[in-house]
Write a protein that binds this DNA or RNA. Structure first.
Length: 417
RNA sequence: GGGGGAAUGUCCCGAGCGGCAAAGGGGGCGGACUGUAAAUCCGCUGCGUAAGCUUCGCAGGUUCGAGUCCUGCUUCCCCCA
């Protein structure tokens, strides 16, 4: 397990990406002999991917970095069915328009990680709707249905757990694993793709694809999954304050993204650097060994590197600079999240609670008042305990803005226009 | 087709003799302590400045008053056929 012949598996192994692999030795042999093609599928259930998908994206990143060809499979077809894996209830079905719009949102992220093109190791993006939607029902059943037994399908955790919990699973959802298997076989036929990767929850689905490909195409096919990621204190990765840690800049600003990584728990620093950055291993080993307050330096480097991969060098530098000024020097930076408010409103005086709700720090005036009472709201660094207090133009600071903070980490600048 | 059970605070689990804005958890948020960490302790967690308003699958009914009783409907689970 420690030493492979191929760069690809060596990197994945030492960085902690590998949870299960259908046949690591054979895959290693194949990968060391020349470029291989591998893929990961992403269903279009939201308009942006989030930090939970990041591990998988990094798999493709390293696949390409080590001289192989990545395929990004957009699940335009599979999303129409909905992956039932480890969900208790069926998700609402999305319309074709929603799916299309979500796919458009998701696509852009990959440009930051992968090089697309026509070259041997250039990444390509395909949509499984292209082949899945073309099948006739009888045709599909006769071609693929004969290779799956219900007996076996019922043993997969994705199905078994749902049944054990006495939750209904529709026939529609039950077919999802067949479609995913067909994807692999299709990519194998068309692009000579030999590897499917994914999260550990996808193991069952992946194995099905591997077997179908072997059976129908008589070619080698492999599956590899990543471990389920949690933080050291057991929380799921990728969820935080305002929801998910989105990768698209319009869903979550680079500054907030940087902050997410900056707030990593001590115990996770090394693990996260291995998984979510391209920092060299020596440096990671040095940084994760830092003790006490010094590890904060490592967290900044982690945040820099992670942000750089998604949003680029410039955005990462700005985010770091902004954070540094706000937290370490107590200086305001114009790059903090800024919300414009009509000058007239401030002139008349606006209730603090109403203001925080307006700028999105709180969801209702009541919530803002309670927050204020607990000392969680600050205007220009002064805690205001009365949410009814008015905020006016008189509160503008020297830079012509009002600094409103919820807690210590969420800061918004209010600018009159 | 017959019989039995279940749906609760727009995150989850989950109590709830007819007087309840509704127990208790988890999660989340805020405060204290720190290192923008973890752990711990404390507070908040339907809307409204307020009077008050709107919540317990849906629609009706009984009652001064219903999450709680009655009727119908929807969805789900279990048993029998």
């Amino acid at each position: 397990m420690t030493s492979f012949k191929s760069d690809f598996l060596n990197v994945l192994s030492e960085r902690g990406f590998i949870h299960q692999c259908t046949d690591a030795e054979a895959l290693d042999t194949l990968a060391s002999a020349g470029p291989i093609t591998g893929y990961i599928g992403y269903d279009a259930t939201a308009s942006s991917l989030h930090a939970g998908h990041l591990v998988q994206i990094m798999l493709l990143y390293w696949l390409q970095k080590t001289g192989n060809k990545p395929i990004v499979l957009m699940g335009g077809g599979t999303t129409k069915v909905g992956d039932p894996t480890f969900k208790d209830t069926q998700r609402p079905l999305l319309t074709d328009e929603q799916i299309q719009s979500n796919m458009n949102g998701i696509k852009s992220v990959f440009n930051s990680f992968l090089t697309f093109g026509d070259g041997a190791t250039d990444a390509i993006m395909v949509n499984n709707d292209d082949w899945l939607s073309g099948f006739g029902y009888i045709e599909f059943l006769r071609t693929f249905g004969t290779h799956f037994t219900i007996n076996r399908m019922l043993t997969f955790d994705s199905v078994k757990l749902r049944l054990e919990r006495e939750q209904p699973m529709t026939f529609l959802e039950f077919n999802y694993m067949l479609m995913q298997a067909v994807d692999f076989r299709e990519l194998n036929s068309t692009y000579n793709c030999v590897l499917q990767m994914g999260g550990s929850d996808q193991w069952g689905n992946i194995v099905n694809g591997v077997e179908l490909t072997r059976r129908l195409n008589q070619k080698a096919a492999f599956g590899l999954t990543t471990p389920l990621l949690t933080t050291a204190s057991g929380a799921k990765m990728g969820k935080t304050v305002g929801g998910a840690v989105w990768l698209n800049a319009d869903a979550l600003s680079p500054y907030d993204y940087w902050q997410y990584w900056r707030n990593t728990e001590d115990a996770d620093v090394g693990k996260f650097m291995r998984l979510f950055t391209d920092l060299p291993m020596d440096e990671i080993r040095r940084l994760e060994a830092l003790q006490g307050a010094e590890i904060n330096e490592a967290k900044k480097i982690l945040a820099d590197a992670a942000t750089r991969l998604v949003h680029g060098e410039a955005a990462a530098a700005t985010a770091r600079d902004t954070a540094q000024k706000a937290f370490e020097q107590g200086v305001l930076s114009a790059d903090l999240p800024t919300v414009e408010v009509a000058r007239a409103e401030l002139e008349a005086g606006i209730m603090l609670a109403a203001l925080t709700t307006k700028i999105g720090l709180t969801q209702s005036n009541g919530e803002a008042r309670r927050l204020a009472q607990g000392g969680g709201l600050r205007v220009n660094d002064t805690a205001i305990t009365d949410g009814n207090q008015a905020v006016t133009l008189a509160d503008l600071n020297a830079d012509g803005v009002i600094k409103v903070a919820q807690g210590k980490k969420k800061i918004v600048l209010v600018k009159p226009v």
